[in-house]
């Protein structure tokens, strides 16, 4: 029996209510679209990179609290990172919410606020809500034309 608060932590409620980096980025260098066919969540990701560094990033779209908060937290945490670092963060985040074993201390440190989403692990049906933005970020970084899908 898991506590609802483990999923809907204060940070998540807050980022859902007032998402950071929400809106279109007019001078984006890459744009990608994400779609979760299971629940109809839609997300646009706007990315601005200079020499492989993410100088700015934003998103808009509609989704559940987990997906909005995840996108908000993600954009906050990848800003200023290199594409390689962002990829690594995705890996760590993926491990956080998918792997049975909890990540090590070092990983947890680099995840920072993203760790608030750890509770999603107990809700297999909701994992895709949390990863949609990351898949979309990845396709923006790779310059994919097709929308990112969680399926």
């Amino acid at each position: 029996m898991f506590d609802l608060q483990d999923l809907y932590q204060e940070v998540i409620i807050d980022h859902n209510r007032s998402p950071r980096n929400f809106g279109k980025l007019d001078d984006a260098t890459q744009v990608a679209e994400g779609y979760n066919p299971l629940c109809g969540d839609k997300l646009n990701l706007y990315l601005k990179t200079e020499d492989d560094v993410i100088t700015d990033v934003s998103f808009d779209g509609s989704g559940c609290a987990i997906s909005v908060a995840s996108a908000s937290l993600m954009t906050d945490s990848v800003k200023g990172k290199t594409i390689e670092q962002a990829e690594q963060l995705f890996q760590d985040f993926h491990n956080l919410i998918m792997e049975e074993e909890n990540p090590g201390e070092e990983q947890m440190q680099s995840l920072g606020k993203l760790a608030a989403l750890a509770g999603v692990k107990q809700y297999p049906a909701r994992v895709k809500c949390a990863t949609l933005c990351w898949h979309t970020l990845r396709s923006a970084m790779q310059g994919d034309a097709a929308p990112a899908m969680t399926e």
Binding site: L4, Y8, C39, G63, C64, A65, I66, R126, C129
Partner: peptide, 13 residues
Amino acid sequence: SVHPHDIGTILDH
């Protein structure tokens, strides 16, 4: 103020 999926999870609880 509540997305259907969040309703679903909370109700499941």
